[in-house]
Computed example of a mutant assay.
Amino acid sequence: MNRRHLLLCALATLTPRTGWAVPTPYRLGTGGATITYTFMLNGAPVKGTVPVNQADLTVDPNNLDKSTALVSADVRRARTGLIFATEALKSPSVLDAQNHPTARFRSTRVKLGAGGRLSDGATLEGDLTLRGVTRRIRFDAGLFRARGSAAEDFSTLTVMLKGRIDRREFGAIGYANLVDDTVGIDIVAEITAAG
């Protein structure tokens, strides 16, 4: 996928005659969705994944800043390449997966780029709930049309979100002597138009 080939630019120029005159809901597509997280463990980067079990997006071409996103993930299925790190991650002092099995992100604001265009860079702000604690976070956001699709074909899209959190803000303070506080989050979700 060519990330420069953004759907965002196309969406910014849509008019009602394209058939997109109303907000359009999307659901997870067959390609699914994954959250990849990155953290430093004893000075070395470690990556892991959490499967997304729900990703709903509504795109409003006439008011792109009114578009919305809701993403949830089952933290009990979080994985890293290291068994001990995976178990520590799900422990009561970090994600506390047994008592808080679901992480959720609900968007509250889409900020368009220069000139009101998503193609000039956009951010997605919202509330992340982790371990039962909700904090406001911000993602850099991208939205892409399927490779090879027609210019007016928005039936399948890929959403990409990139951000960082400080795990201490969510009470995930375990293993502070081994794991840095900053965690990178990347979400990639394939979504398809509902109906």
Score class of each variant (00 low, 15 high):
1 M>F: 09
1 M>H: 08
5 H>F: 14
6 L>G: 14
6 L>R: 13
7 L>S: 12
8 L>I: 00
10 A>K: 13
10 A>F: 02
12 A>L: 00
15 T>D: 11
15 T>R: 14
15 T>P: 03
20 W>A: 06
22 V>L: 06
23 P>H: 10
25 P>Y: 10
27 R>S: 05
29 G>R: 08
30 T>M: 06
30 T>R: 09
30 T>P: 12
30 T>Q: 12
31 G>L: 05
31 G>R: 10
33 A>E: 02
37 Y>Q: 04
37 Y>M: 06
38 T>P: 02
39 F>E: 00
41 L>M: 06
44 A>M: 05
46 V>D: 10
46 V>I: 14
47 K>Q: 14
49 T>R: 07
50 V>A: 07
52 V>G: 08
55 A>F: 13
55 A>E: 02
55 A>T: 07
55 A>H: 06
56 D>M: 02
56 D>I: 04
57 L>I: 15
59 V>T: 02
59 V>C: 00
59 V>S: 01
60 D>Y: 08
61 P>Y: 06
62 N>V: 05
64 L>K: 00
65 D>Y: 03
65 D>V: 03
66 K>W: 01
66 K>D: 00
67 S>M: 04
67 S>W: 04
67 S>P: 02
69 A>C: 14
69 A>W: 13
71 V>I: 15
71 V>R: 05
72 S>E: 15
72 S>M: 11
73 A>G: 03
74 D>Y: 07
75 V>P: 04
75 V>H: 09
79 R>I: 07
80 T>E: 14
82 L>H: 08
83 I>M: 12
83 I>F: 14
84 F>E: 04
87 E>A: 11
88 A>P: 01
90 K>N: 06
90 K>P: 02
92 P>T: 07
93 S>D: 15
98 Q>K: 12
99 N>K: 13
102 T>H: 08
103 A>V: 15
104 R>F: 00
104 R>K: 11
105 F>L: 12
105 F>P: 05
106 R>A: 15
106 R>G: 09
107 S>T: 12
110 V>A: 11
110 V>H: 08
113 G>L: 05
114 A>Y: 00
114 A>Q: 04
115 G>F: 02
116 G>M: 05
118 L>K: 00
118 L>H: 00
118 L>S: 09
125 E>Q: 05
126 G>C: 02
127 D>I: 07
130 L>T: 09
130 L>M: 13
132 G>D: 09
133 V>T: 15
134 T>K: 14
135 R>T: 06
135 R>P: 02
136 R>F: 03
136 R>Y: 01
137 I>E: 05
137 I>Y: 12
139 F>W: 09
139 F>P: 10
140 D>Q: 04
142 G>P: 05
145 R>T: 10
146 A>H: 10
147 R>S: 12
147 R>A: 14
150 A>I: 00
151 A>Q: 11
151 A>L: 12
152 E>Q: 11
153 D>R: 01
154 F>C: 01
155 S>W: 07
158 T>K: 01
160 M>T: 14
160 M>E: 15
161 L>R: 01
164 R>T: 12
164 R>H: 10
164 R>M: 03
166 D>V: 01
167 R>C: 08
168 R>Y: 15
169 E>I: 01
170 F>Y: 13
173 I>V: 15
178 L>Q: 10
180 D>C: 01
181 D>S: 12
182 T>K: 14
182 T>C: 04
183 V>M: 08
185 I>A: 13
188 V>W: 01
189 A>S: 13
190 E>D: 11
190 E>F: 08
192 T>R: 08
194 A>F: 10
195 G>M: 03
